[in-house]
Amino acid sequence: MKFSLRTLLILLCCSFSFASISFAQEQGEAPPPQEKSDDGVTQTVEVTNAKNPDWKSYRVMLKGVDAFEKFHARAPQAIHKFILKPRRAEVELRGVSLRLSTDTFSRPIPIAEDGSFSLPIDMQAKEQNAELMINRKKDMFRWWPLVRSPTMLVNQRRLGDLRLECEMFWAIYYDDLPFIARNFVRALGGPCNTKKVSFSFPAEFMGLKEATLIEGDRRQSLPVDLLKSSYSLSLFNNAYSDDAVIELVYENSKAETSESRKRNFNGLSVAVGL
Rank of each mutant, 00 (worst) to 15 (best):
V185T: 06
V185P: 00
V185K: 02
V185C: 07
V185E: 11
V185W: 09
V185A: 06
R186S: 06
R186D: 04
R186Q: 07
R186I: 00
R186N: 04
A187R: 02
A187C: 03
A187Y: 03
A187M: 07
L188V: 02
L188C: 02
G189D: 00
G189S: 01
G190T: 04
G190I: 00
G190H: 01
G190P: 00
P191S: 09
P191N: 08
P191M: 12
P191G: 15
C192R: 02
C192T: 03
C192V: 01
C192F: 04
C192H: 03
C192S: 04
N193R: 13
N193A: 08
N193S: 06
N193P: 02
N193C: 09
N193D: 10
N193Y: 15
T194Y: 01
T194D: 03
T194S: 04
K195F: 12
K195W: 10
K195T: 14
K195D: 14
K195P: 09
K195V: 14
K195Y: 08
K195I: 10
K196L: 09
K196D: 15
K196G: 10
V197Q: 11
V197H: 03
V197L: 11
V197C: 07
V197R: 07
S198K: 15
S198N: 09
S198W: 05
F199D: 11
F199T: 09
F199K: 08
F199I: 09
S200C: 10
S200N: 05
S200W: 09
S200V: 07
F201Q: 06
F201W: 08
F201Y: 09
P202V: 05
A203L: 03
A203I: 05
E204D: 10
E204M: 05
E204I: 02
E204L: 10
E204A: 10
F205T: 13
F205V: 05
F205H: 13
F205Y: 10
M206Q: 15
G207Q: 15
G207I: 13
G207Y: 15
L208R: 05
L208C: 10
L208W: 02
L208H: 07
L208Q: 10
L208T: 12
L208Y: 07
K209T: 11
K209N: 15
K209Y: 14
K209W: 13
K209A: 09
E210T: 08
A211G: 07
A211V: 01
A211I: 06
A211N: 08
A211Y: 05
A211T: 04
A211C: 02
T212M: 04
T212C: 04
T212Q: 11
T212K: 12
T212D: 04
T212P: 00
T212F: 06
L213C: 07
L213T: 12
L213S: 08
I214D: 06
I214T: 11
I214C: 14
I214L: 12
I214S: 11
I214A: 11
I214P: 03
E215Q: 15
E215D: 01
E215H: 00
E215T: 04
E215Y: 02
E215G: 01
